[in-house]
Design a protein around this nucleic acid. Structure first.
Lengths: 347, 347
DNA sequence: TTGTACGCGTTATCAG
DNA sequence: CTGATAACGCGTACAA
């Protein structure tokens, strides 16, 4: 019903400045081959009339859309429960806005959504794609990579499509220092609540747990949860049924750790005196848990920023304030961000 | 650098089908005045060649962008700490995607961001604007409303600009039933931790507390927090310093209620035996708090959906599955969603 | 009902 | 370094 507000066209600016359209275009697009006197004259006309280029017309010519999609391949519940999504969105949006690119959100939760995405991509109004691949989203990455557009994935893809670049947190190291922290604290019988094994974050953190525990690692003391609080509670119940005297638990994310705390409290076990617990993520809830949760902090905001910067370079665009990790040496297509332990009271 | 993938143009489809461009256009856009034989012929050519309309060219003609912005006028911390933002985004995105509209995210946290938004709006590549106005964001709503584009605000705006339509939760009723719940439970000395008074949610919930407590309301037992956990803890400290024997607290959101629980526990007060606590939001953390938090649930996902539907109607577009609230009777420009008490252990 | 011809606002190409 | 002029892909009066 409503259309765009009226605004001056290139021709009107040209008329106002007494030059040709081409010259105005050159000035607007920062072409260096223009006389300084004319340039200022044009610039004045531009601010005078409040000229803003028509993106549709420009896009029609350049065949670029100045638009990037952020695709979240995840169920509503998980996307919502996890601050990960919001942080990455914010970081990427911030970085893209700085370069004048639009960010459109697309959540894929069903086969129908995937069809819609494919059509959208084929519609050709995307310059690049960011994928948050929290679990095995082969289809999404496949569709994205198959489009021929530059793609950057958040989190190591489970199934590599060619050499799709990605930005991940160092989940293995994180798992290792979490487990190591419990050992250093004197825990002897340490159990693990792992994340879903169809997600690289779940797989990699478990690898870290195993490495960190070394000889103390007991394959029988591993239970898999689904990254939700209730899932973490259930996994903890199963562990306690099998080893009532365990004295430490490494948990693959904070929400599941919260569930573990609830179960332990319910059994009259005191944390950390009887059982020490370490989470992962440093989600907001970690600090306000009872007791406050020792956890592994990851740089999710930076992850979003870096994904965007990575994509920008692949689009051949200049990055305003490149993060050091962007040009640092990294093997293959992946950039991995460091993590750190945040010691609180639970371990 | 990379452009759009190659795909057929209208002319190529026309040639393939042996008709004119105009006919193809009519079929694609669902014009009824076309012979059925030709129509199927065209449709076949379309699927044959995998034709997808060029959005830029179409936008250039129609002067519509098929794009809606969701503007969040909030600080990073608050946006992230609150599941509100994610839920509204998800709901709105879902509804807009169904109508083939794009959703672009824009977060305004500084004057500079506001300038960017203004330029973006003037750029003319938006058909409508959704604003999440968590606190007094007069500027954002002003910019949006001043653009001449249809605007729908999430949450009652603090300063009405003309008759800007909005979708809100029934914060007053929510506050009332929260307070009433404590009274019914037998609490006599009930304190309130209110939200920021530059946000309509903060103001309205306090009004509800006052109404719900009736004669038991004591203006001296009100402290204002900033919707964060630490803010809630500080407010609770102040209240306890003034009335050590209070036996109930209504808190304007769950994060602050978590802070209250921590303080109470630290003082050796048991919840709900010594002091009962009611929160607001039914955030994820409410269920896993110690003890699980009795709270007021609001329909944030529906709020996002309804905002989008409301905007769609104002854009003159058909809404696929309109929510009953969309066409229900409502005074003025606002639609208010109902809330409900979720009784858990804290009260 | 169908086809023709033009214009939307911009960038790219080529003379001058 | 500047200025005409031709596309880009689509919608739409207007004519047939």
């Amino acid at each position: 019903m409503r259309g765009q507000p009226e605004r001056p066209t290139l021709d009107q600016v040209a008329a106002h400045a007494g030059v040709s359209r081409a010259t105005v275009s050159r000035v607007v697009n920062g072409s260096s081959t223009v006389d300084e006197a004319l340039a200022t004259q044009v610039r004045r006309a531009v601010t005078d009339l409040g000229y803003v280029p028509n993106r549709a017309a420009r896009s029609l010519m350049t065949r670029r859309s100045e638009t990037v999609a952020l695709v979240a391949a995840e169920s509503t519940t998980r996307v919502f429960g996890d601050p990960f999504f919001a942080a990455v969105t914010r970081g990427a949006g911030q970085e893209l806005a700085r370069s004048g690119l639009h960010l459109v959100l697309s959540m894929v939760q069903s086969e129908e959504d995937l069809e819609r995405l494919a059509g959208f991509v084929r519609g050709g109004h995307l310059d690049g794609i960011l994928v948050i691949s929290e679990h095995d989203s082969r289809d999404v990455v496949g569709v994205a990579a198959g489009s021929g557009l530059p793609v950057v994935v958040g989190g190591r893809p489970m199934t590599p499509h060619g050499e799709v670049p990605y930005v991940d947190n160092d989940n293995v190291t994180g798992g290792r220092i979490a487990a190591g922290h419990l050992l250093a604290r004197g825990c002897r019988r340490v159990a693990s609540v792992a994340g879903p094994q169809d997600m690289s974050a779940g797989v990699d953190r478990l690898i870290g747990f195993r490495e960190g525990l070394g000889g103390a690692f007991d394959p029988d003391l591993v239970e898999v949860g689904d990254f939700t609080t209730t899932g973490g509670a259930a996994a903890t119940e199963r562990l306690l049924a099998r080893r009532p005297n365990l004295d430490g638990i490494v948990v693959a994310n904070d929400l599941m750790a919260l569930g573990a705390l609830t179960v332990l409290r319910g059994r009259g076990l005191e944390v950390p005196r009887d059982v020490a617990v370490v989470g992962f993520d440093d989600a907001d809830v970690a600090a306000v848990a009872a007791p406050p949760l020792t956890t592994v902090r990851q740089r999710t905001l930076d992850q979003g920023r870096l994904m965007a910067q990575y994509l920008l370079t692949r689009l051949g665009r200049e990055v305003a304030e490149p993060m050091p990790e962007l040009h640092g040496r990294h093997d293959g297509p992946g950039i991995v961000l460091g993590v750190e332990l945040v010691a609180r009271e639970s371990a």
